[in-house]
Every structure is written in structure tokens, then in C-alpha cells.
Design a protein around this nucleic acid. Sequence first.
DNA 1: GGTCTGCAGCTTTTT
DNA 2: GCTGCAGACC
Length: 707
Amino acid sequence: MSKRDFPYSDLNPEQLDGVIKTDGPVLVLAGAGSGKTRVLTYKIAYLIDVYGIKPENIFATTFTNKAAEEMKNRVEKLVGKNIHELWIGTFHSLCGRILRTESTHIGLSQNFSIYDEEDSVRAIRHVMENLGFDRSRVNPRMLASKISSLKEKLITPEYFTPIAKSGFELELLLPLYKEYQKLLLKSNAVDFDDMIMYVVLLFKSEPDIEYKWSSRFKYILVDEFQDTNLAQYELIKHLSKVNGNITVVGDDDQSIYGWRGAEIRNILNFPIDFKNTKIVKLEKNYRSTKRILELANCVIKNNKLRHEKVLWCDNEVGQKPVLKRCLNEIDEAIEIADEVERILDEGIEPNKLAILYRTNAQSRVFEEEFKRRGIPYQVVGGISFYERAEIKDMLAYLRLVVNPKDDISFRRIANIPARGIGKSSLDKLSNEASLKGLSLYESAKIHCDNIPISASAKKGLANLVNIIEEAKRCAHNVYEALKNIVDNTGYIKMLEAERIAESEDRIGNIYELLSSAYSFVNSHADAPSVERYLSEVSLLTSVDLWEPDAQRVSLMTVHSAKGLEFEYLFVSGLEDGLFPLADAYIDVEKLEEERRLFYVATTRAKKILHLSYALSRRRHGEQTFSLPSKFILEIPKELLYEEKKEPEPQSEDNFQISINSMVYHSYFGRGKVIEIRGYGKNAIVTVYFEEYGIVKLSLAHTQLEVL
DNA sequence: GGTCTGCAGCTTTTT
DNA sequence: GCTGCAGACC
């Protein structure tokens, strides 16, 4: 393709501007549905075709692997040939690639394991035990997330040492963080945050390596820039250092990952950090009807922290969005299922529909109702396939095959299925290992005879070593290796022997994993190794497992729905305390993030939008009462078609306390009610007191005056 | 060393 | 209401 053949006419003037402004820093502020993916794909195609840039010199980040795959396919269509060496993927997968080549500089070998959140919590538990910390007093999960947010800010243990302040940080967090990092390095493993942090630290400390990579990548493109954290931002700064050609695309109104360290300021400060930034604004929406867009605009304009902009469109006016007040969460599921059936009866394909909710736990009621009626559906996210215990066990075996230093994986499966290796044997093995400076697996393999453990435990260890060594022989083919492990461990026999309701499902999952490995072998015929399989599977996102073409209705959280669109969309559970979550009332920033989340939710709809809330809902097994979401009140009445069910008259006593009530307590003073659990005298209310912060009170034992 | 039971924490979102 | 863990018991 020459400059003349490029399909310029596929783009509107602003989009085209975003594409042809190739050099130097470019910030594309792209509203929802304004075609930002289009800008990115055309830009990559333009660079390759018109500028003659080699794909291997382009580095592009997307939010999911699926998005990367789609983008690559679209680029291939545009340029009319297959492209192989394009660097496109999530931050994690791209950093993983860099890390595999540079691993020795970090003290890792190239076959390192990647730990997910569960693995890292296990590792932290183990470290806590070694350090003699009381696990019942401090929650390992909480510590894991503290460590994670330090890493997001590139704060290593060394860097943290002089700045740790509180007793908690000095006596607990810091020593734990140090030991945790040691354990990971010893296990030849990284966690998600390490993958990015290590690459950035390497670039900082080794100018040669920084130069090598940043001269390689002539063009950097970043999608969903509003959701990058500090480490990711630093990464792209380093990568663009030599050539300086960097295009970031994002929408501050869609920044919804602040809780994960995303810095909305990255998008606000970009023109300051990168001199002479060209700014392109995409404000024309191609996705939604006028009415849907107007509704979304009315809510998001209540945010203070944002670039002022108004999305507009030429699309049809469309139908009025519907707001339904339901009695409870079951009623809500029934109402939505009714409407879904009505739509499907018109001959609409199920994959044009989606139900969104704020929390994963809400999916259950919908699943039950859809199952009962035989409506085909798929749940995206939640506990994903690859997080199931039996699957993670199998993956732990595979990891050991590739990485014999992986102690966390070893501990996980040492005695699953049971082979006589209990805690005391494991402790003795661990002693022997640290004495010899070996990993658990290595010392089981080499020094099994020297360890003072029972004959049966020795036999068990020998058996385990055998299983791994045999799988190692076919490590070039993940299917063969996995099949080997499944057969030799007797894992399925173990499940069969359990004879509990879920055993059958779990056996099914093992077979599903086998077939996934089988198709991996087929689709990666050149090198279907265990190593490659693991490096892909470890970095899958929940949306990666979604099948958009399957004829099923999609159920997912609003977070998962980012970047997607559906003709018919249901946004459910729009209640104060749920969406927005109760916590959001504590500070404005959190509330604004919830509002952006609402904006993301509603702008997923192309044609039809249904909003709903329930007057009461069971949460954590208790009935709660709530008011419609604050965001619903921000929508002008005339923009909605409302259907209200009258609440069943019930003995709510004199239940005059509700969410948002201002109350007075003789000790804590003035506060605002942010959550109510249970009802009447038995209710537990959560109050945000002006002076004391959050306090939970039982109405049975406390006097609260409603102001 | 393996199995059972009771209890704690949990449900905000995810790479 | 459920899950996963720790401790007790066999």
C-alpha cells in the first residue's frame, strides 16, 4: 500500500489527525465509543504500510490479551498480510517478554514462574510463618495488597527502608516485604507487579539495556492510558526515550482502576511530562443512541476532576432508557429475565445482550434464574477457570517441570494427591534444602536419602520426583506433559474417591484443561512447550476467556465490560451502598470513581439501556434495605421511562434510619449512615463519623439520634 | 501423617 | 451463606 492507497476515508477528521500525527508525543483524548481502537489500529497499519516501519519496532499496549489479538487481526486485514513480530499485548505480557530476555540481570533465569495473587498470598503466609508473625492478627491478603501498591509505585524494600514510618510498616510490612522478595527470587519467580517493576528498575540502573530497548521501539502506543499506574508510566517513559514517538489514548472519564494504583493524573500530566505534546480530541460517539449518550453525559458532568468535554453523536434518538424499581434481587432477576426473553423472542441473538453489575457476587441470582428458564448465558470473570483449585494444582505441577526452584508450587502439590508427605516431612526437607542451598524439589531429587523422614515419606518424594522427571521428558509438548501428570499422579482417581457433589465438575475441569492444552499444541505448532503455555496462561485476564461469538447472554462486572459494547444492556443493582459502594461516601475521589464506573457501564449500550434497582437485597446472608443510587437521582426525570413496583407493606417498625441519614451519637458525635444490615432493632448500621471515621453499631445496643 | 470439625473472614472492582 | 484455614483428634 502506498500513501495514496491508505483508506483515509474510513476515518473522521479528528481520527485521521490521531493517525497521521505519528512523530513526537501525541495524546488522544477519546470519549466513550469515539473510535479510539480504530485510531490505534489504523495508526499501526499506517506506520507499517505508509512509513515502512517494521512491526518488531512497534510496541503497543492493550488492556486485555483478547483486545491485542483483535487489534493485530484488524491490522493484518488493513495491510493485507500477516504480521508476526509486532509487540502488542498487555503491559504484563510485554514486560514478561522483555524480562525473559533480560532475566539474568534481575537474578532470575529465563524459565521463571509467574505468581498470581493467590500464589503470592500463599508465599506471604509462608514468610509470615517463618518470621513468627501471628497470622490470625494480620491478614495476609491485606499485606499482599500493601506490597502490591508499593511495587506499583516502584518502591523496593531498599527504597522503603528509610521511608517506612509507623510501627506497622517498620516491624511488619518492611521485614515481610524483604523476605517475600527473597523467597520469590530464590524460587525463580515473579509476581504480577514485579514484572513491570523489574523492567523499569533495570532500565533505570542499566543505561545500556535501556538504550537497547528504547532504540528498538521506534513507536510506542498505549491504549486505556487513564488506567496506567506509576510503574507503567515510567516504563513507557523509558521505552520512548531514544525515539520519542509515543501515542497514548485514553479517557479520563473512564478511569476506574484507582484502587489498583492507576493514576488519573498520568493523563492530566502527560503534556507536562512530554514537551510539545500534540493533543487530539475525539468527541463524536459512534456507538450509542442520542438518549443513552445524554443520560451518561448528565451523570458524568457532576464530576469535578475531569477534562471538560461533551460527547455528541449523529446516531438515532433511540428509545428512552428504562428504569425499573424492583422489590428485591430475585424480583430484579425475574424482571430482567422476562425482558431478556422478550428480546430473544424477537429473534435477537443472545450475544447482543449483556447484564452488568457492580460486584461478582451479584451474578448468582441471574445465573439461577437464567438456568431455570433455559436462557443461554456466560459469566465473565468471577472465579475463573484458571483459578480453580484443581486447575491450579495441575499448573503447579507444570511449573515444577519448567522451574525446579519453584518452592511455592512444590509446597502446593507436594501432598496432593496424598502421598505421605506431611508437614513434618516437608519441614525436614526444607531444612535440608536450605542447608545445601537448594530448592525443595532439587533436594528431594538429589538428597532424598539423607533426610531423616519416614520410609513412606521417602517413597512419596521419590514418586513425586518421578512424576516431574517423566513429564520433563515431554516438556516440549504441553499436552503430552499434562497428560502424563494427570495419569501418573492419579489426580482423577483422587477426585473420584472424594465422592462429593463437586467432584464430577472438578474432573470435568481437568479434562477441559487437557483439551485446552491440546488446542494450544495445535495453534502453536512451532513450539508448543510447557514453558510457553505457562507464560500465556499465567497472564490471561478474565475477559480473555469470554466468547463474544457464542450465542449466550453475557454476565459480567462493569470493570470487565470496559472497552466492550452491546446492543441491549442491563445495568443492575443501582442502589446506594452497592453502586456506588458504601465506602465511596467516605471521600469525593472514591465517589467520582464510582461515577465514572457508572459512566462506563451506561456507555456500553448501543441501542437499548435498562437500569434497575431493588428495594431490598440479601447481602452476606442478611437482608438489607436501600435507596436508589445517587447516580439515578442525577438523571433528569424526562430522560427515563420509569416502572416502579410498590413495596410490599411490611413490618419495618419505625425504621427511620436510612442510608445517608445524618445521625448523632453521644460519644462519636455526628456522622452519616453508609450501610444498614438487617432491619428494625436487629440492624447493624455502619456510620461514617466526622471525627472518628467508620464505626459499626448495633441498633439494639446503641442510641442513635436521627438528625 | 491424615482426616475431621469449627471458626473466621468475607464480597469491590483485576493484571 | 460460603470458603478456607488451623487445630484437634484418630
